[in-house]
């Protein structure tokens, strides 16, 4: 591993994450085989991909928000809200599916806009702004929903249950959204501005970028993508649940996946492919621990360690490649030098 990283052309952080993913797949394959199971059976591949789908949507959105230098902690509540709103609107009728989906996306977009506006215009840090809106939504949910609510018609549930070979339809939708977001980031002016504002807001402003726009766009897309996750959960659960978002710890896990995927937490650098690889690594990890029968408590220990160690693998390299303003003498050598 280490020789691989040192030799040859320098790997980008995305490259390293992909190497980590391949490595985790190999380890997963071996450990699963030791348990007498087949890692590559269609059932297992489908389980792996399903594990990726939901966190995947949220993590793509989180990537955008982090790229622009903010955070989104409201995603679990957006997921829950969308799940109950859409389920209530569908009420088991095929004809209601389209209005329900549009309503869900519109509500989510509105929440995202509010988040973005609080960050961009009121000058509140994304951490606090979205923590706050999350609380606001959770109060609304607690007041109005005492348990599962509404129901999804069969046509809508098929989205969660249909597979093309071993690949769930939900994974294909995820990939579609990922491609669109990548195109947005690479090809549109807003995408470029998003990086610019996340990299250095002041410089971006001085170079004539209206800095609020990328912030609004990133937060809005993050909420909309969380809404897609909520809709997918609705398709899988068949009913809306006011707690489904909090159940999955999607706020912190999505941030972890984004950073694991090589996006710089301070903003301005990173990409969606890395994020998806990060989500995939989590999925493989959960899958293998499930097969091995690791106890629920120890699973958390392993997750915690893997997150830190995996990020550490490339974090030190990243330091050297950062522009001056990010530079931090956090390498061992620098530290020792200073200690003298």
């Amino acid at each position: 591993m280490s020789t691989l990283l040192r030799r040859g052309t320098p790997l980008t952080s995305t490259g390293i994450v992909l190497v980590l993913l391949v490595l985790s797949l190999v380890v997963g394959f071996v450990l699963t085989a030791v348990e007498g199971r087949n890692f590559l059976s269609s059932g297992n591949i489908s389980a792996l991909l399903t594990g990726i789908s939901i966190l995947g949507f949220i993590a793509i959105g989180q990537t955008l928000v982090i790229l622009v230098g903010s955070l989104d902690l409201s995603v679990p509540y957006v997921v829950s809200l969308v799940s109950v709103l859409a389920a209530g609107t569908m009420a088991g009728e095929d004809g209601n599916v389209l209005p329900a989906v549009l309503l869900a996306l519109a509500v989510a977009a509105a929440i995202g806009l509010v988040n973005g506006a609080i960050v961009a215009y009121l000058g509140v840090h994304g951490f606090i702004a979205t923590l706050g809106t999350g609380l606001v939504i959770s109060g609304y949910l607690a007041t109005n929903y005492q348990g599962s609510h509404g129901s999804a018609p069969r046509s809508f549930r098929l989205v969660g249950a249909t597979q093309v070979g071993p690949v769930p339809v939900s994974t294909l939708i995820l990939l579609g959204c990922a491609v669109l977001v990548v195109l947005m980031l690479r090809r549109t002016r807003t995408g470029h501005h998003l990086y610019a504002v996340g990299g250095n807001r002041e410089v971006a402003r001085l170079s004539g970028i209206r800095t609020s726009v990328p912030v609004l766009v990133a937060h809005t897309l993050s909420s909309v993508l969380a809404a897609l996750a909520g809709l997918l959960l609705l398709a899988r659960l068949s009913v809306g649940s006011p707690t489904i978002g909090s159940q999955g710890d999607y706020d912190l896990m999505s941030i972890a996946a984004v950073v694991l995927g090589g996006t710089v937490l301070a903003g301005g650098k990173g990409n969606v492919v890395g994020t998806l690889a990060g989500v995939a690594i989590f999925s493989v990890l959960d899958n293998v621990m499930g097969v091995m029968g690791v106890s629920a408590f120890l699973q958390d220990v392993v997750r915690g360690l893997v997150i830190v160690v995996a990020v550490a693998v490339y974090a030190r390299r990243e330091i050297d490649r950062r522009p001056a303003r990010f530079e931090r003498p956090t390498g061992l050598d620098a530290a020792l030098q200073e200690a003298k």
Partner: peptide, 17 residues
């Protein structure tokens, strides 16, 4: 500091572990 992992992630990992 030494590993250069963002503190958000280090302490999140610590929280889980």
């Amino acid at each position: 500091t030494l590993l250069g992992v963002p503190s958000f992630i280090v302490t999140l990992g610590m929280m889980l572990a």
